[in-house]
Amino acid sequence: MEFSYEVEGGNFAKAGNAASGVKKVLKQLNVDPKIIKRIVVALYEGEVNVVAHAYKGNVLVDIDTNRIYIKIVDEGPGIPDIDLAMQVGYSTASAMVREMGFGAGMGLPNMKRNADIIDITSKVGEGTVVELTTKLTS
């Protein structure tokens, strides 16, 4: 099964739409709630990152019987130093993002913690691609 969701940069009202949709699908597939939580928390953090930092983005979700693959692609400023961005507490988020309850430099590390495999590629001035793969059975 494949699904696709648009994410608007700056639009916090819609952050979480993709994660919410994916959660409903995984529940219908009777995936263990603990695994569902890991997947949707990682995706939600990813959506918030796109809203907080990029101009626009797209979430592609591919689910098969064994695993879920999520690709978050954005057009945005990109990440100059991915190792630095992975450090807990490092953030370039604006005051607006902080008012929304985020921007503490925890997003990418939390995504890593909640995915089996995470791949991040980024080009400064173009955008970022985050790929998350997680097994659906423990």
Binding site: A15, A19, K23, G101
Partner: peptide, 15 residues
Amino acid sequence: GLTNMQTVRTAEMAD
């Protein structure tokens, strides 16, 4: 004390 959509979405994702 954070009253916005993100609070409710966070609750949803975190069960």
